[in-house]
């Protein structure tokens, strides 16, 4: 476990890496969520259009 200790800067280093990981994950999730929303939106819209015809 010793290599995980970064001297007195341990908290700073690990929190930086942690925040980076969190932000990257948020970016990925955000991109996926938007894609899903657009897809389901399109499905509803196109179904409505087809049934009208």
């Amino acid at each position: 476990m010793e290599i995980f200790m970064m001297g007195k800067y341990s908290a700073h280093v690990w929190s930086s890496f942690g925040i980076t990981a969190v932000v990257l994950i948020i970016c990925v999730l955000q991109a996926r969520r938007r894609h899903r929303i657009v897809l389901s939106d399109l499905r509803v819209r196109i179904k409505a259009m087809e049934s009208e015809q």
Partner: peptide, 23 residues
């Protein structure tokens, strides 16, 4: 994090640049 030698001045604190500079 584990293999790069620690900085003389900043010690292990310098390892923050591995996320700061790329960002």
């Amino acid at each position: 994090l584990f293999y790069a030698p620690a900085d003389e001045e900043m010690n292990d604190g310098f390892r923050i640049i591995y996320v700061h500079v790329p960002a």
